[in-house]
Every structure is written in structure tokens, then in C-alpha cells.
């Protein structure tokens, strides 16, 4: 990857789309990339639609506007598909990644989008591995795999180290989080 990759996240306040975008920035940073991670701040309330952004590049990034023509769109809450024009400006060669139990074909019809559509059931993975609904970790893994902004092997090593750091007081949750990551890498599926 030599060129700039631009990613737009759609979520609802409280679901961690902003945190996920910052995590992605962090893992890309750790592999030597230039990164930006920033949310679009509005009247933030639990459940209100929010947008967050990532730019990732091998070169320094000087642009400081929001992203209008993203390479990838990530939808953390599928109910937003009916509320927000999530694919607006999405590049023709781009892709959209949706957190849903539905198939890529079904989501593609709902989105009315011609490009690549990927789905990941982050709720199921999260509930089965972590015992509660934390969509961030599986979504992050799916985004890394589909966008290819960093190699999956590098990501696996890096994310394990950061889980060990983050959960230093409860190391027993590290394997559960790693299982969520690995399942997401396997279970994200696409209509290409």
C-alpha cells in the first residue's frame, strides 16, 4: 500500500465507533504508517448516529477535512442503513463492511450499492467469545482484513500485545479477545 487509504465509520453513540477508529489508527501507527483518527463531533448522545474517520498512508498526511470520498465505509450498527446515506461518495473500487447477521447479498440490496459488500456478525462473535456485546474488537479485525492497511500477521501480534497491556489486571480475558479477533478474520464474508 503506497497511496492514501480513507475510511469512514458509521456508528451510534456509545457503541465505540470512535474508539474503533482510534484503535485502527494505533495498530497502523505501530507498523510505521502515517495515520489520522478523528470523530466528527456533534451533539453526542447514546444512540445518536456518529461518524468517525481514518486516513492511513505511507506518506505524511496534511489534509485536515472530513472524508467525502472514502475508500472504505464501516457500518457498526446496521439500523443506520435506513437512517444515514452510509455509502455516499464511496469510491467505485471501494467496499463497505457491515456488522450484521444478514448475508452480503441481502445487505447489498438494502444499500443499493454496486461495489463490494462484506458482512460480519460482530454481535454473535462478541457474545460467544466475550460474553457481552462489544462489537469493536471483531469489527477492527474485519476492517484490517478487508482493507489490507496492515498485514494480518502483524496485526495479530500487535493486537495481542496491546490486549496484554490493556488487560494487565485481568489476563484471563486476553485469550477471549484473541478468539474474537481470529473468528472475525475467518467469518467476515463478502460479495465481490
Amino acid at each position: 500500500m503506497s497511496k492514501l487509504v480513507e475510511i469512514r465509520w458509521h456508528g451510534r453513540g456509545g457503541q465505540g465507533a470512535k474508539t474503533a477508529s482510534l484503535l485502527l489508527a494505533e495498530v497502523a501507527f505501530n507498523t510505521g504508517k502515517y495515520i489520522q483518527g478523528f470523530p466528527e463531533y456533534g451533539p453526542e448522545r447514546m444512540g445518536a448516529p456518529i461518524t468517525a474517520y481514518n486516513r492511513i498512508s505511507d506518506e505524511p498526511i496534511s489534509i485536515h477535512s472530513n472524508i467525502y470520498e472514502p475508500d472504505y465505509v464501516v457500518v457498526v450498527d446496521e439500523t443506520l442503513i435506513k437512517a444515514v446515506p452510509v455509502t455516499a461518495g464511496l469510491k467505485k473500487g471501494g467496499a463497505v463492511i457491515v456488522n450484521t447477521a444478514k448475508s452480503p447479498e441481502e445487505i447489498k440490496k438494502e444499500l443499493k450499492y454496486d461495489g463490494r459488500v462484506y458482512t460480519i456478525d460482530a454481535r454473535k462473535i462478541s457474545e460467544e467469545t466475550l460474553g457481552a456485546y462489544f462489537p469493536n474488537t471483531p469489527m477492527l479485525a474485519a476492517v484490517v482484513k478487508i482493507t489490507g492497511v496492515i498485514p494480518v500477521e502483524t496485526f495479530l501480534n500487535d493486537i495481542e500485545a496491546s490486549f496484554k497491556h490493556k488487560f494487565a489486571n485481568k489476563p484471563h480475558v486476553v485469550p477471549k479477545n484473541m478468539e474474537a479477533v481470529k473468528r472475525a478474520l475467518e467469518e467476515v464474508k463478502g460479495n465481490e
Binding site: Y34, I35, G37, F38, P39, Y41, P60, I61, H64
Partner: peptide
């Protein structure tokens, strides 16, 4: 420096 644009964006 610019509020939110610089203050809240993570960069290198």
C-alpha cells in the same frame, strides 16, 4: 491550534 480538528484528532 484548531479545536477538534487538531485538538481531538490523533496524528503522528
Amino acid at each position: 491550534y484548531d479545536g477538534f480538528i487538531t485538538s481531538h484528532a490523533v496524528e503522528n
